[in-house]
Design a protein around this nucleic acid. Structure first.
Lengths: 327, 327
DNA sequence: CTGAAAGCGCTAACAC
DNA sequence: GTGTTAGCGCTTTCAG
């Protein structure tokens, strides 16, 4: 480590050290363009010696490409950003971005004013866009500039490809499992109504209970454990003979279980409870749920925009039923 | 919204629309420098009209300041990044960065090769550094260039200020509560040994049990629920008469409870269990824990580096005992 | 108080 | 193959 406390090297330093011109050095680093093996070699050496790392700001400036991915999360209030699911998404995207020299920012977009998205994307620092909990209105507002550099997690559109979970299939498997194990009064704690992907779960639930001639019992939730905690009581108050509760998310289910146990209701003996996603904590409470590789899904989405891979309109990840103790 | 699908406005556009020179426009936006009220006004109008947002890459280039904050997480393997605590940290920092036009990246730094940090910070795209789970060796490697733009969450050093939780105090309160409620065989599922801030909790635990003439019973954990799940069984195998288990984190405690319940051990009747942090899920399982505004703490750290506030060497956030059902 | 001019570090034509 | 040149959008002396 003879490298003194110098300022980080620039391309000029590298070129000088290698005895070539800046352009040649640039070409070698870009990989494309021509360069003699000798030049290539000498530049490589200089780079290592100097510990050269390209300045992403300069690169972004000349390419007009931006320096960070924006994760735009739609919702009724800034509190949507408090969701651990969002945390996970941000972290996963940040991880995918790091090797590309890009950063991540998250911002909330109010459901009522989708135009706010435009203000966010007008920032040329934005190199790409990841939409979370999106609505069709929002999808339509993605600017041309970001064509091919935007992706939605959930529903997509003709111009914005999406990466999604088979919510319907997952929920169907869960409800069917409940039915097959003898449950006949199956309630559901849903997600917010405006959220398209959550609604697919709700619709699957409705279709199934309807088909089986069972009553549909729905309480609106918001994915959170806290809401699940409250919703459980509401379910049992409205329909005391309920024998199963389907949670729209694992957190919801964990909240439901917490409340039931606190109220002396046995799980799964009296009431079966299911979740959705299979978060790490699920195993510790033996939660029956549907498993999805959320991290991978988000990484896939981030990679799509980072590598500009022309993606199919929709990539659907499967949902796998995981039967544990709670149902 | 007459704004056509144009390319985002540049400072030149603003200057032209305002009928002033680029420099004047720049001065007005910077806030400092001279500018007549008239000029100021006209530039403001133009900015709003055009929806102008400065290009952060250009700005970073001229200032040599970087375009993203780096969150460096020390650990034995890349799996440290899978921790929900890290997720939360990344998301909180990303949130704080967004209004500043900065992004966030996360990278893992192997415990054995702290020099890897240097390679990361040599990237001029790095505007600031947030250290997580850091070690003294790592702290010493923070380059001069980042002086005043680095902060550690946990232990700090003379050159790197830190934002920290009063782990010792929190743990003391927890163990004392356990003792006061009659527990005399108190075990602890610790964090990894190399982690200084977790060790403060362990030391507090040891001091207290020692002082009370109780045996110290420690099983090494890693903050995860999964590890807590396994550790619970180990504790009861080694010391069957244990009547309380202190978890180094809420996730650990949740894992412990899961395992105990699965094994027919009653919580808190047979064994009391406590956590640390007070994550949202804690309330749903009635976990007794110590509460810390983690999000706020991380936001405070991020703000320190974003606003270059000359910070005291260490800012300690208090820990508050929250007694719920589990102990 | 304001404008002209010189770069920040890098890339991409375009000559040599 | 390689060097020269002209910017990307912005800030900041330095003259007016």
């Amino acid at each position: 480590m003879t490298t003194a406390a110098r300022r980080p090297a620039t391309l000029d330093d590298v070129a000088r050290a290698a005895g070539v011109s800046r352009s040649t050095a640039s070409r070698v680093l870009a990989g494309n363009g021509f360069a003699s093996p000798t030049a290539r070699e000498r530049v490589r050496t200089a780079v290592n010696l100097l510990g050269y790392v390209p300045n992403p700001a300069a690169r972004a400036l000349v390419h007009g490409s931006g320096v960070r991915l924006l994760i735009a999360v739609a919702g009724t209030g800034p509190a949507v950003l408090d969701d651990p699911y969002v945390d996970q998404a941000v972290a996963a995207v940040a991880r995918a971005c790091a090797p590309h020299g890009l950063g991540v920012a998250v911002q909330w977009v109010p459901l009522g004013e989708p135009e706010r998205l435009t203000r966010l994307t007008d920032d040329r620092g934005v190199a790409g866009l990841v939409l979370l909990n999106t609505t069709p209105a929002l999808l339509d507002l993605v600017p041309r500039r970001l064509a091919g550099r935007a992706v939605s997690i959930g529903i997509g559109s003709a111009t914005v490809p999406s990466v999604d979970i088979d919510n319907g299939g997952g929920t169907t498997a869960i409800v069917r499992h409940l039915y097959d194990t003898g449950r006949r009064r199956i309630a559901m704690v849903t997600g917010p109504r405006w959220l398209a992907c959550a609604n697919r779960s709700v619709r699957a639930y409705r279709a199934l209970v309807h088909e089986a001639g069972l009553p549909a019992r729905e309480v609106v939730g918001d994915f959170s454990a806290t809401r699940g905690y409250a919703a459980a009581r509401e379910v049992l108050r409205r329909w005391p003979d309920t024998d199963a509760i389907v949670g729209i998310s694992d957190a919801t289910a964990l909240g439901v279980i917490g409340r039931l146990r606190a109220d002396g209701v046995r799980v799964p003996d009296d009431v079966a409870v299911t979740g959705f996603d299979d978060i790490p904590l699920a195993v510790t409470v033996a939660l029956t749920t549907a498993s999805h590789p959320v991290r991978q899904i988000i990484t896939a989405a981030a990679t799509m925009v980072l590598e500009q891979r022309t993606a199919p309109e929709t990539t659907v990840f499967p949902s796998t039923l995981v039967v544990r103790g709670s149902a």
